[in-house]
Computed example of a mutant assay.
Amino acid sequence: MTDFSADKVIWTSRVHDSFGPVVELSDEQGQISYYTIEKEFDVAGNSYAVLISENRSEVQGPEIFRILTSLEGTLELVTIDDDDEWENVSELYDELTFPE
C-alpha cells in the first residue's frame, strides 16, 4: 500500500520555478486555460501540483495534476487517471490545507 501521509510530504516548487506563478494548459480541443499554482509536493514517490483555474466558479475547487519529468528535465502536468490515486492525493491535500 502506498503511503499518502501528511508527514511524508515534501514541499517543492519545480513547476513554479520553471513557469512562474501561472501556467497555461490546453485541453484536447486546443482550448487554453490559465491556472495559478497553489501548492506543489512530492509524496509516495510521485510529484503533484495543485492548480486553481482563473475561470473557476465559487464551488469548483482546485485541480490536482501529477508532475512528470522527462529524461531531458522537461516538466509535464498530466491528469491523474487512477481513481484511488486521485482520491488519496485529494484527501491528503484537504488534510494539509484544513488540519483538524
Rank of each mutant, 00 (worst) to 15 (best):
D3G: 08
F4E: 04
F4G: 02
S5A: 04
A6I: 09
A6T: 10
D7S: 13
D7V: 09
K8L: 06
K8M: 05
V9F: 03
W11S: 03
W11R: 12
W11L: 05
T12E: 01
S13W: 11
R14I: 04
V15P: 00
V15E: 00
V15I: 06
H16K: 07
H16C: 06
D17N: 15
D17Y: 13
S18E: 10
F19I: 03
F19M: 05
F19P: 00
F19L: 05
P21Y: 15
E24H: 00
L25S: 04
L25C: 12
S26V: 13
S26E: 09
D27W: 05
D27P: 03
E28S: 12
Q29M: 06
Q31N: 09
Q31H: 08
I32G: 01
I32E: 05
S33W: 11
Y35S: 00
I37E: 02
I37G: 00
I37M: 03
K39E: 02
E40S: 08
E40V: 11
F41M: 07
F41K: 07
F41C: 05
D42W: 10
V43I: 11
A44Q: 05
A44F: 05
A44L: 09
A44W: 07
G45A: 09
G45V: 05
G45R: 08
N46L: 12
N46Y: 11
S47I: 01
Y48T: 00
Y48V: 00
Y48F: 09
A49C: 12
V50P: 02
V50G: 01
L51P: 04
L51Y: 14
I52C: 04
R56Y: 10
R56P: 01
R56F: 06
S57T: 14
E58W: 03
E58F: 10
E58Y: 08
Q60K: 10
G61S: 06
P62K: 12
P62M: 12
P62A: 14
E63N: 03
I64F: 10
F65L: 01
F65P: 00
F65R: 02
R66M: 06
R66N: 07
R66Y: 09
L68K: 01
S70E: 06
S70G: 02
L71D: 07
E72Q: 10
T74L: 06
T74R: 12
L75N: 02
E76R: 10
V78Q: 02
D82W: 07
D83F: 12
D83T: 07
E85T: 14
E85I: 15
W86H: 03
W86C: 01
W86A: 02
E87N: 07
N88D: 11
S90Q: 10
E91R: 15
L92S: 03
D94P: 01
D94K: 14
D94Y: 14
E95C: 14
E95N: 13
E95I: 13
L96C: 12
P99N: 14
P99L: 14
E100G: 13
E100F: 14
